[in-house]
Design a binder for these strands. Sequence first.
DNA 1: GTGGTCTAGACCACC
DNA 2: GTGGTCTAGACCACA
Lengths: 115, 115, 115, 115
Amino acid sequence: MDFNSNKPIYLQIADTICERILDDQLKPDDRIPSVREYGAQLGVNPNTMMRTYEKLTSDGIIYNKRGIGYFISQGAREIVLENEKKFFLENTLPGILKTIKLLGIDPSVFKENYK
Amino acid sequence: MDFNSNKPIYLQIADTICERILDDQLKPDDRIPSVREYGAQLGVNPNTMMRTYEKLTSDGIIYNKRGIGYFISQGAREIVLENEKKFFLENTLPGILKTIKLLGIDPSVFKENYK
Amino acid sequence: MDFNSNKPIYLQIADTICERILDDQLKPDDRIPSVREYGAQLGVNPNTMMRTYEKLTSDGIIYNKRGIGYFISQGAREIVLENEKKFFLENTLPGILKTIKLLGIDPSVFKENYK
Amino acid sequence: MDFNSNKPIYLQIADTICERILDDQLKPDDRIPSVREYGAQLGVNPNTMMRTYEKLTSDGIIYNKRGIGYFISQGAREIVLENEKKFFLENTLPGILKTIKLLGIDPSVFKENYK
DNA sequence: GTGGTCTAGACCACC
DNA sequence: GTGGTCTAGACCACA
């Protein structure tokens, strides 16, 4: 957690969870800690955790059983991958291409540094 | 101008100016419009324009003649290039490599889409 | 059982029981399963079942013999019918009329879909 | 505002705004009050207002200009109508039909009471 | 125990 | 002035 980042904490936490899903550390129907528990763990207010969980729920990545807790959705990994892929191709890639062209950087740096 | 972007408007405007410098549409000692004029043009508050000019001034990209206006600095193009190159190699590149690896994107997309 | 519905689970279960009463699947003095048994059947906490039974008891729809179990009351069917009729005419109907008027839905959809 | 309703306040407020949109009291690009102003008006915490505005934004009904305020979206009325129609046909109608059948209510009550 | 909603008050970036 | 995020603490319904 970077408390000074310009990226909201609740989204940073969401990202962390998404990464764990991609890594298969979190699998469908796994329970994730309660807002209170996780909040205490991270030194963050339960309300902030709640915002994270709301966001992930509306994205279909986790689901809720009332009074019990939050769980990873069935299609979670696919949704996360899809989101990130989309974000990359739409937002990141065009900027990159424009930039390296402007800066005169050879596009093969990517292949060379790719391992 | 994208008023809903998460990127501050004043930085979006700064970017626009930097791009014109890179394109040689703006050359050293060219005068750029006053905050009022430019602001009216873009439908933006003069205060916001002022922040743009302050930022570019502190970067050494433009300079001010009191009572006359703002002008492109001598080394402007080089500074802009240098800034962007540095930013790209330090901040953007590592993230890109990590991401495309995670998403299973072939690094040759860059070469293919490069024109 | 829909664990994500905004309707409490204990009320969903109560509704299920009421429907069986209306259908004559459950008749006066029939015994209904114990909270443990029924709870296990539905994958629901016995506490939740208890709330269902408490609610139905206070409505006079079921009654309890200590140490033996819960049973359907004599007037159960009439009570359920009465409750639902009252609820419908008081709460549901006015909202429906307002809504279909606003949405421009023809009130004959009811007659058409009624089978 | 009904502070004792089981429906969250922030959703009640959202509904109010949606109704005004349907009534054409609020038209595209109209500004709605700031979270502080509207909150004070309704005797509600600005945070609660914020939740309302977040919800409506994610539904595409209003949009935000940073530092300026929230405004009605172009397609707002259509979205609201669509949402309510969908909700009615999917959630409300089936229950109604089931109920009136069970209760032995003649479906022509709708036509008769419709004005 | 769990989540869901709400308040009060704070700080920040941006216009 | 605007929204956006966060904390602390409260109360409630539900399991």
